[in-house]
């Protein structure tokens, strides 16, 4: 079954499945051990390297399982992990599995413009005021009205020495917001890139501060970004193009990486995101097969009761009008052919001498005849008239 159309072929909202958007993506780490090589880490030796690629390879690479930062000795001890997702996704969760005791403070950021600007999604620390200058998150989520980046407890330490940071986009969103109807929630969950900033390493208790001395490092095995490829309800899957860029497989007359605009000929009404109730498919302009391009006119759309605003451009086959639905001057409708026929409009063919003009009646094809002249094209004298020698008055009354 086609998830984007019902059994009758009518469009319906469709979304790609939930995936780990970070899987196979190239992670950039601001610090990775092994350059220069140490006893336990050598970037040039695959058996002893701890590259950031391990975070998104799902254990596919041989050798060590964990990425590791350099040994950090001086404040600030920030290390940043950046994952470009390749295109816009609608986030569901972000998780980081740490190989050693988890950091005491982490900031989670997102970009919606491929890394040009960043906005926080959440902060994680037992000392929110100290680390981020923010109060701890209220027990029942943000007071609203919109989602916001809150400061949550520090990543959880797991038995055996590892740790886990788990963030759900719902954690920053007030209850009751619906993705279909809330543009602010749509904006909140949308990201093209994710950044995890490890700002304070694990220490014994809360005693660490900027004057502390020692050697610290971060280590993590997996970074997951759970989400759906963002297609605005107009595609059920995303696929890589020949250059490897991920694109929505757009339906409903839409196009673009996120199906966020109508295809050129599908502009009879404005683009809209699909909802569970209404697919809001882009509609093709009605040009009776005589035009390849059209443009949207908001004034006409309003006047039509928000039903149709498309205006056909460059009507061909001698047609004219907003929908190429009548014949242009000098042509008339052939009643024997449907309006969509290439030859639906016939030339008037008014007689050069018998007709008083070149434009015929667009419905009947009747040319305007001079006095005493008859026929559809004014090519003969009416009964009771005979041809004269004057081209100005070609027919005169029969004596």
């Amino acid at each position: 079954p086609d998830p984007c159309h019902d059994e009758g072929g009518a469009p319906r909202s469709c979304v790609p499945g939930l995936v780990n958007a970070a899987l196979g993506r190239e992670v950039r780490a601001s610090s990775t051990c092994g350059r220069p090589a140490s006893r336990t880490c050598d970037a040039s030796d695959p058996r002893r390297a701890h590259p950031a690629a391990l975070l998104t390879s799902a254990g596919a690479a041989p050798g060590p399982l964990c990425w590791r930062s350099e040994a950090l000795t001086q404040s600030p001890l920030n290390v940043t992990l950046t994952v470009p997702l390749g295109k816009a996704f609608e986030l569901v969760f972000v998780s980081v599995r740490f190989c050693s005791a988890p950091p005491a403070a982490v900031a989670l950021l997102k970009s919606q413009d491929h890394g040009r600007s960043w906005a926080p999604l959440g902060f994680f620390s037992a000392r929110c005021g100290h680390d981020f200058g923010r109060p701890p998150a209220p027990a029942h989520g943000p007071p609203g009205p919109g989602p916001e980046a809150l400061c949550f407890p520090a990543p959880q330490a797991l038995p055996g020495g590892g740790g886990l940071l788990a963030f759900s986009v719902q954690d920053g969103s007030p209850p009751g917001l619906d993705l279909d109807s809330s543009p602010v929630l749509q904006d909140w969950v949308t990201a093209t890139d994710i950044q995890v900033v490890l700002t304070r390493p694990a220490t014994t208790g809360d005693t660490w501060d900027s004057t502390a001395t020692g050697t610290y490092s971060y280590s993590a095995a997996e970074l997951q970004v759970g989400g759906r490829c963002k297609c605005n309800g107009h595609a059920a899957r995303c696929r890589p193009d020949p250059q490897g860029h991920l694109l929505c497989d757009c339906q409903h007359g839409t196009e673009g990486p996120d199906c966020s605009r109508c295809k050129p000929f599908y502009c009879d009404r404005p683009w809209q995101r699909a909802t569970a109730r209404e697919a809001h498919a882009c509609l093709a302009c009605s040009c009776n097969g005589h035009a390849r391009r059209c443009r949207f006119n908001m004034e006409l759309f309003r006047l039509s009761g928000r039903r149709s605003g498309g205006v056909c451009l460059n009507c061909r086959h001698n047609t004219a009008g907003r929908h190429c639905h009548y014949c242009r001057e000098g042509f008339y409708r052939d009643p024997g052919r449907p309006l969509s026929d290439r030859r639906a409009c016939r030339a008037c063919d008014c007689h050069p001498v018998g007709a008083a003009g070149k434009t015929c009646n667009q419905t009947t094809g009747q040319c305007p005849c001079k006095d005493g002249v008859a026929g559809l094209t004014c090519d003969r004298c009416a009964p009771g008239f005979q041809q004269s020698r004057s081209p100005v008055a070609p027919c005169v009354k029969t004596p």
């Binding site: 018998g354 002249v373 009416a382 009964p383 041809q387 081209p391 070609p394």
Partner: peptide, 23 residues
């Protein structure tokens, strides 16, 4: 009654050369 079509050869174009060209 079907009337014959206008016969262009019967017209005297002497004073209407421009009309002849247009035709």
């Amino acid at each position: 009654e079907v009337m014959p079509t206008l016969d262009m050869a019967l017209f005297d174009w002497t004073d209407y050369e421009d009309l002849k060209l247009a035709a």
